[in-house]
Structures are given as structure tokens and as C-alpha cells.
Amino acid sequence: MRAIGLYEHGTPEVLHTVDLPQPRPGRGELRIRVQAAAVNPTDTVLRSGQRDLSGQPLPLVPGMDVAGVLEEIGPGTDTGLRIGDAVMGIVVPRGSHGAYSEQLVLPAESVTAAPRGSGPVEASTLPMNGLTARLALDTLGLDPGSVLAVTGAAGAMGGYAVQLAKADGLTVVADASETDEELVAALGADAVLPRGADFAAHVLERFPEGVDGAVDGAMLHEAVVPAVRQDGTVITIRGYDESSERGVRFQPVLVVDYARERQKLDTLRQQAEDGVVSLRVASSLPAEQAAEAHRRLEAGGVRGRLVLTF
């Protein structure tokens, strides 16, 4: 089968078409014919070598989001899905097991039906970022009526955090550049404030006692702390966990903790069907143009997800 992988870390040009054996599902697993795989910052981190992946078999195949058609059910697998169903899933990449593949075997708990009314390109944008946002909010555990700050709100994970927080009954204050203000407001943010290092100061103008918690998709880290009330929590990505002031705690989240939370993924599917969350696609490209997708993502300014098609 065809996949997009790399034998050495580097610039986007290290991504090439590779030929791999077709995987077969074992007990508790499903095989998906992949039609679309979203491109995420975690993929560029893997490709560029910012994470130590020594010891993993080559080629490395990136990708954490897929959508396609269920083609095979492993023996003894408990699933309500049927062969031929349109599905989406979250991938925990390791070695040559990654989403940029024509065929992929996943645990049944990592797969659910694709949202009705969406194609595979749209469906592939939901699992990883949607589950990351869900995990962030579940970790905070804020009560309805609490105030949440979201940085990086125009991005995929940040946008889902805004929408899911509103569905949870939270008041949301979010950041945006001038060109993204309309987008972030349309996602449901109650207050849209200028992005950047001064975000906390702008938050305190609206909420002098600070917000109850924050989801820091923009990785402002210490710069967002003044906006959070004493003993509050800032959810971080990419493992950031440092000491802070006034008892404010940094709490990193890793979506792999929700990679087998099928019910939570299926709830996201339902919320997409109900219009609670938006499936945002920047553009789609043939899988062979993965290098170009990585270049575009790293150049910045992408709103919605770039998606590779097979």
C-alpha cells in the first residue's frame, strides 16, 4: 500500500511516497481504507525532529487524523460499525503506523462513524483536535457559568475549545488577530480580545478578578498567567509544565489519553451533525503533495485544516 513517510528528519522535502505492506486487523481492531488525513502541527514536529523518536522503525509515517471507509473487522471485535460505513478515527503514530496511509488498522475504540452530511475531508479534521479540546475542558472541570480564556482561538484546537466550552455552559473570552475577530466571534466567544503578549492585560480589563481557567492553544505560557485567578489552571500543549505564581498551575494534556475514548469521539460526531462544532477545511491536496501541505502549515496563517487525500 502507498503511504507518505520519511527516513530522516528535516525540511518538508524529506516526505516521500513509500510502499508498505497492507496491515490486517487483529482482535479488537478495524481496517480503514483512508480517504483523507488531516495535517496538524504535531506532524511537522515529528517530521522536523523536534521530538526524540530514536528506536522507532523506519520509515516514519506522520498523521493523527483519518477518515474513510471501514473495510475489515478483526475477529471477535465488538463494534456497532459495519463494513462499508463511512468512519473517522484518531491515530497514535509510531514508526510506520501513521495516518498518511492508504490503509490503516486502528483499535475499535479509536473509530466512530463520520458525521452525516460531511465528506471524508471534513470528517478528518475532527478527531485529534476535537478530542484535545474535550480533554482540556474535562481536565479543567469548570462548572457552568465559569469564565474560560482560550488562546489560539482561531486555530483548529482553539476553535473547538471555544465551541465545546460554550456547549458546556461556560463564558468564553478568546484571542484573535484583527483579521480573525469575525471568525472567533462566529465560533461563539463572548468576548474577543487582541492576541499576543498583552492578552492577559486585556482580559483583566473585562474580568478584574481573572478567569477561572485557560486553554493555552497559542502557547503563551507565563504570559497568560496574570489573566487567571489565584489557584486556577492553565491547560498547555506539547508538555509545557513549569512552576508559576499565585498558585496558578500549568497542566499539560496529551490527546493520547483520549485516543480510545470512543464515546467521547462519537459525542463529537453528534455535535458536528448538530452544528455545535464546525468542521473547518483550509484546503485539500493529493497525498503526494504532503511536502507542500507542511510548507503551508509552517508558513502560518492557515485557518482550518489542510487535508491530504488518497
Results as ranks from 00 to 15, higher is better:
1 M>L: 01
2 R>L: 04
3 A>E: 05
6 L>V: 02
9 H>Y: 13
15 L>I: 07
18 V>Y: 12
19 D>T: 08
25 P>M: 01
27 R>V: 01
27 R>A: 10
29 E>Y: 02
29 E>H: 04
30 L>E: 08
33 R>D: 05
36 A>V: 02
41 P>W: 01
41 P>C: 07
42 T>N: 04
43 D>E: 02
44 T>M: 03
44 T>A: 09
48 S>F: 05
49 G>W: 05
52 D>M: 07
52 D>I: 14
54 S>C: 06
55 G>R: 07
57 P>Q: 02
58 L>P: 03
59 P>R: 01
65 D>E: 08
67 A>C: 07
71 E>L: 00
74 G>M: 01
80 G>E: 13
82 R>V: 12
88 M>Q: 14
88 M>Y: 10
89 G>T: 10
92 V>I: 15
93 P>E: 08
96 S>M: 07
98 G>S: 04
109 E>V: 15
110 S>W: 02
110 S>D: 07
111 V>D: 02
113 A>H: 09
118 S>G: 00
121 V>D: 04
122 E>N: 04
122 E>V: 04
122 E>F: 06
124 S>A: 14
131 L>Q: 06
135 L>A: 05
135 L>I: 10
137 L>S: 05
139 T>D: 03
141 G>N: 07
142 L>P: 09
142 L>K: 10
146 S>H: 11
151 T>Y: 03
157 M>S: 15
160 Y>C: 05
161 A>G: 09
161 A>S: 13
161 A>W: 06
162 V>Q: 13
163 Q>S: 03
164 L>K: 08
167 A>V: 00
169 G>F: 06
170 L>G: 06
172 V>D: 11
175 D>E: 11
177 S>W: 01
178 E>C: 05
179 T>R: 11
184 V>T: 15
186 A>G: 15
189 A>F: 13
189 A>E: 09
190 D>H: 15
192 V>S: 09
196 G>H: 01
199 F>P: 02
199 F>G: 06
203 V>G: 12
204 L>K: 14
206 R>L: 12
206 R>F: 05
208 P>R: 11
210 G>K: 04
212 D>Y: 15
214 A>S: 15
215 V>W: 13
218 A>V: 14
221 H>V: 11
223 A>D: 08
232 G>D: 02
236 T>H: 00
237 I>F: 06
239 G>Q: 08
239 G>Y: 07
239 G>K: 06
239 G>W: 09
240 Y>S: 00
242 E>N: 00
243 S>H: 07
243 S>R: 10
244 S>V: 10
245 E>V: 05
251 Q>F: 08
259 A>L: 00
261 E>N: 10
262 R>C: 03
263 Q>P: 03
271 Q>S: 07
273 E>R: 08
274 D>H: 11
277 V>E: 03
277 V>M: 09
278 S>I: 03
280 R>K: 12
280 R>E: 10
285 L>G: 01
285 L>N: 03
286 P>C: 09
286 P>Q: 11
288 E>K: 12
288 E>N: 07
291 A>P: 13
294 H>Q: 13
294 H>G: 10
295 R>V: 10
296 R>I: 15
301 G>F: 06
301 G>Y: 09
302 V>K: 00
308 L>Y: 15
309 T>S: 13
309 T>A: 14
